[in-house]
Design a protein around this nucleic acid. Structure first.
Lengths: 151, 151
DNA sequence: TATTTTTATATGTATATACATGTATTTAAT
DNA sequence: ATTAAATACATGTATATACATATAAAAATA
């Protein structure tokens, strides 16, 4: 679907303005798509993101700050996302021995199982819905990084 | 900044997977950038979006549904965003004469003034931070629509 | 060593998102 | 004409986002 249809507007100041709206809309579209699959597992998008980050270091523990700086949405409130994952017994909090300010987190066996099942489903969904070859994806990655060049 | 630095990860399944994360991250980056400017005017990103949509039809009134389907994030709770804009006297609610189920909304004079001031600032900010020429923006728009082709 | 500053996390508040439900009104079906 | 279905909006709840503040511990400084 063209952006014009999606937001029922044709008035863009220029192509750059249209591109900013297009990025925002595409992100919403992707999130909505993934959330439908995640919901089956009782997970939200950001809970899933935290589980995947923990998986990357497993079986090592990670402190809250290190999880936070790997999040896609940097202002996510990681302690509260962990609260909910802990309630579902998918992660476990421990006090750090090296630095008593830190809380360190690990995946539980249950967390690993849920993450693996979820990842399979999400990957399959994206493969079937995101119809883009590697060459185009590479161009897209380059352009997005160009857009953020001033970061 | 490269995505790899931004989310401190280099493990992407493939370029398409990286592109999905890159879109999500870029959207967050854009929203954060704009929010900084909007905050000066006491507006949130979605409140600003509603004001801009109303501007497109002004001085005509728009019903809640028509605003909703022009929103970038479709699941936004438009009545509640309007509640806050109404409290700030930036918009006005009226009962529709044609269909008593509808509430129709218009910008107030104050709303128009705030919107114009805000738009000027936001536009200037994007021009200075989004360093991309029209040609690249056009390619980017094409690729994003390719990504969502199955929509 | 004592004090200050910084860091890591948690908590509080307002708004937003996602979704379910309730209510009034309109449209369609019987 | 009456009933049923659909529509428009509002409201309620759980979670997330954005940001301010609080608390404890570590690091830096006097």
């Amino acid at each position: 679907m063209k952006l014009e249809q999606a937001i029922q507007s044709t008035k863009f100041k220029n192509e750059v303005h249209k591109a900013t709206l297009n990025v925002l809309y595409t992100a919403w579209w992707l999130k909505t798509l993934m959330s439908k699959e995640l919901k089956e597992f009782g997970l939200t998008h950001e809970q899933y993101n935290v589980l995947r980050i923990l998986k990357g270091k497993h079986p090592e523990q990670m402190c809250v700050k290190d999880i936070g700086c790997r999040m896609i949405e940097k202002n996510s409130n990681v302690p509260r996302i962990i609260d909910r994952l802990e309630l579902k017994k998918l992660v476990k909090r421990n006090d750090s021995e090296f630095d008593k300010r830190e809380t360190v987190i690990t995946l539980t066996q249950s967390g690993i199982a849920v993450l693996e099942a979820t990842t399979g489903k999400v990957t399959a969904l994206l493969e079937s819905e995101v119809l883009m070859d590697d060459k185009d994806a590479k161009s897209l990655n380059g352009l997005l990084e160009k857009l953020r060049a001033g970061e």
